[in-house]
Design a protein around this nucleic acid. Structure first.
Lengths: 341, 341
DNA sequence: CGTTAGCACTCGATGAATTTGAGTGCTAAC
DNA sequence: GTTAGCACTCAAATTCATCGAGTGCTAACG
């Protein structure tokens, strides 16, 4: 258990360090407004905090910097989250107002505004189509042998892929099949589509069309295959403004990682609901062991739709970022609801 | 007019410099296989080449590096383009073979493989839908007041956007309108859609439906609005491997620019057909005055569909990149034709 | 006359030695 | 428990000398 004074000092050190990126000395703490202890006293406390593993010293004659554990304590107990700043809220309002005619891309815009407001990197996971239902399914023939399969979700999201039509199946057969699928699948959540296809539809379909197994398999794949949620990334180059990444090699490790959408998805999907903070090595992915990742999920009618996140150096403005993510995740939810009507 | 020997020396210097990123001295040239002149002779020639503006000296006691003009001469007169290397071709084959089930995204894959093979940054412009024709148009109602408009092109590409349905128009009216549009617009190139809508369809439609002007305006916008070609970017972080960008600030200028899709499009669209090389300051965009951009367009049945490009440092392997882009642009064309069937 | 050996000269890069100063830990006094 | 005082530490900045790759120029050579 930390004393009140120790908590104050830890907080002050983190604040200072976040701002300056330089080790913080006892003198600069003691000179702060509202602090009435001499540097010597502060030094004693600092030594104690170091022993507790909350601070560390880059070298003997330098000030202290927070350890991962120190940040963790700060985030868990010390942080003040007093809501997004007026300024940020106004920025967000006008930004979305400008893009209102493209509201279907709220998520993409959210990524942009997040990185702009924070000067960190934002990673945003688009609405997870798995949590939504199938509204409409359709084939548009392109020529004799191929067609575009179009899948519309109840959220208005559209996926499409090109399929090849097997020999010996006519367009007529195809449209019969599609009609049946639409009848049976409309309103079914995507994650159940596969099951429904096998249990209810296969038999029924056999009545109408011969040799439909091959077609069905293709359509099934078209519908269920890889509804990978989209990942939006914005402000990756902001990483380069952080002094901790002035070394190009370190920066490259991170930027390389950010280019692998797959890894990104995996990274951000590992975060459950609510607001999550992963500090430094708490992140499973080694490339970002020098970074912190804060995420928030956004929901619609109780369903988690996706995640917005901020990746920055461990030396991050946790309070500000958490407030912002909290505000924006709610705001997105609102905007989307309005979109769904 | 350069003498044979001068051309040889210029070529040798550029080769060396591209490999090493260090100023090239007279000795290292004279020691090359097949060179039978002393360093002193080479030095004299070098001085002449410098006077011609083809070389420059970072400082008096350093070797020479090529100037923009020198690279230009190299690209225009000296370069040997002997086709993509066996190794690269094999890589491309297997890469595309793996992704065959997602051939509709050839372009995205092309960007990836390009950056992987070159270790530079690739910028690829997706098929320009303006050069294609409308195959199918459709509305899928989401709820009473909104619907998703889906536009399918003859290439199999799909665009979609959400629209709001004006008060007082029934779904029935809508589908009538959509039917007429499909009848009249199928096969029309996108760039003519607007004209056809106004000239042929407006009157005809008035017969079927009252108050259709508002709806028509919305649909027109849905169809013609912003078919911005997609830009794919890959290997942006490769920039960081180049010694010329070991300075984080320089790197950031470029990476910032690469995040603005709009600017990217503009940059790459400024390149007309065939293979284009823009060296250093020849690029209009200031942020990449330290870079060279090489582009190639890919076509289908004589129509230019899009552009693939490589952005790297001025000190770039021009021969290799040009061969590769040449090969890949043809390959993409082939793959897409097969896709269209 | 073109080519080359020789040589003095230039100047960034490298690295050792030195200085500086922010910050510490400890001790003793308040 | 707090603080003044002080010796000590060590990275960073500064200075200075050295090194060496590469040049330009001159004179000699075939």
């Amino acid at each position: 258990m930390l004393s009140e004074r120790q908590r104050m000092i830890l907080g002050a050190i983190i604040d200072d360090y976040v701002r300056s990126a330089e080790p913080v000395g006892s003198r600069s703490i003691s000179k702060r407004a509202g602090v009435s202890f001499s540097p010597a006293t502060i030094r004693n406390e600092m030594a104690d905090l170091e022993e507790l593993g909350l601070l560390e010293q880059p070298h003997t004659s330098a000030g202290r910097i927070p350890s991962i554990k120190g940040y963790r304590y700060y985030v868990d107990h010390l942080i003040t989250v007093d809501g997004a700043s007026e300024h940020d809220i106004r920025k967000i309002r006008t930004f979305f107002a400008e893009k209102m005619n493209h509201w279907e891309n709220v998520i993409g815009h959210a990524a942009t505004i997040l990185s702009q407001l924070t000067n960190y990197t934002s990673i945003v996971l688009g609405p997870e189509i798995f949590n939504t239902t199938l509204k409409h399914f359709q084939l548009v023939p392109i020529n004799d042998a191929s067609a575009v399969a179009i899948i519309v979700a109840n959220t208005g999201h559209v996926e499409h892929r090109t399929i090849t039509i097997p020999e010996g199946i006519t367009m007529d057969d195809m449209s019969k099949i599609v009609n049946v699928l639409n009848d049976k699948l409309a309103g079914v959540p995507f994650f159940r589509v596969k099951a429904v296809l096998h249990s209810e539809i296969a038999k029924e379909l056999a009545r109408y069309v011969d040799h439909c197994e091959g077609v069905l398999a293709i359509l099934e794949q078209a519908i269920t295959d890889e509804h990978e949620p989209k990942v939006y990334l914005s402000g990756a180059s902001n990483m380069l403004t952080q002094p901790e990444f002035k070394d190009v090699d370190k920066a490259k490790t991170i930027l390389d990682m950010l280019e692998e959408t797959q890894k990104l998805t995996q990274l951000i999907q590992a975060h459950p609901g609510g607001i999550q903070v992963r500090i430094g090595t708490e992140n499973a992915v080694e490339a970002i062991n020098q970074c912190s990742l804060i995420t928030a999920t956004y929901t619609h009618e109780g369903q988690s739709l996706g995640t917005i996140g901020i990746l920055g150096p461990v030396r991050m403005e946790y309070g500000k970022v958490i407030s912002l993510l909290d505000y924006l995740s709610r705001d997105i939810a609102k905007l989307m609801s309005r979109g769904f009507k």
